[in-house]
Computed example of a mutant assay.
Amino acid sequence: MDVRAGLVVLLCVMGFTCAVPVKFIDCGSPSGKVAMVDINPCASQPCQLHKGQSYGVNVTFHSAVESQTSTAVVHGVIAGVPIPFPIPMEDGCKSGIQCPIQKQQYYHYVTALPVKTEYPAIKLVVEWELRDDNKQDLFCIKFPVQIVS
């Protein structure tokens, strides 16, 4: 076990909230490449999202294009049907990204994923896109979650 892994295990044992890198599927990112996805807190997968709480989402990606803007679009996919999922901040340039986005640079998209109390308890797939000026995906990822009471 390397030193970093040992430190993570130690902090988890001490009771700190632990996030593990989320396993995701790239659903088409012609303008970029995702390096890592974190949801906090998410100690196991699929991430259990508790109603009434908010979760931190951090996507590290590499841009293959320049773009003045970035816009997030999120869907919950239930039985193969994408249902729009509102997020508090759609503007990626106000979510940890310094715009304009430069070609061949890494960025950390950081935002919140609120889970409303009226959402049903259900397993679903989240599809999260961040689009550039031309409405092409800087990234498109899918990952499973479970909404719980």
Rank of each mutant, 00 (worst) to 15 (best):
Asp2Leu: 11
Asp2Gln: 05
Leu7Cys: 08
Leu7Arg: 03
Val9Asn: 13
Leu10Cys: 10
Leu11Glu: 03
Val13Asn: 14
Val13Met: 15
Met14Tyr: 01
Thr17Met: 15
Ala19Phe: 01
Lys23Leu: 15
Asp26Lys: 00
Cys27Met: 04
Gly28Pro: 12
Ser29Tyr: 00
Pro30Val: 12
Val34Met: 03
Ala35Gly: 13
Met36His: 04
Asp38Ser: 12
Asp38Lys: 01
Asp38Asn: 11
Ile39Phe: 03
Cys42Arg: 01
Ser44Gly: 11
Gln48Thr: 07
Lys51Val: 09
Gly52Leu: 06
Tyr55Leu: 08
Val57Cys: 05
Val59Asp: 02
Thr60Ser: 08
Ala64Cys: 08
Val65Met: 02
Val65Gly: 12
Glu66Tyr: 09
Thr69Arg: 02
Thr69Phe: 09
Ser70Glu: 07
Thr71Pro: 13
Val73Pro: 14
Val74Cys: 14
Gly76Arg: 08
Gly76Ser: 15
Gly80Gln: 01
Val81Gly: 05
Pro82Gln: 01
Pro82Gly: 09
Phe85Ile: 10
Ile87Asn: 05
Glu90Asp: 10
Asp91Cys: 09
Cys93Gln: 02
Cys93Asn: 04
Lys94Glu: 12
Gly96Arg: 01
Gly96Glu: 00
Gly96Phe: 06
Gln98Glu: 07
Ile101Phe: 04
Gln102Phe: 10
Tyr106Ser: 13
Tyr106Asn: 12
Tyr106Thr: 05
Tyr107Gly: 11
Tyr107Asn: 06
Tyr107Val: 06
Leu113Phe: 07
Lys116Asn: 11
Ala121Ile: 09
Ala121Thr: 11
Lys123Ile: 07
Lys123Gln: 15
Val126Ser: 04
Arg131Tyr: 03
Asp132Ile: 03
Asn134Ile: 06
Leu138Val: 05
Cys140Glu: 00
Ile141Ala: 13
Lys142Cys: 10
Val148Pro: 13
Ser149Trp: 04
Ser149His: 07
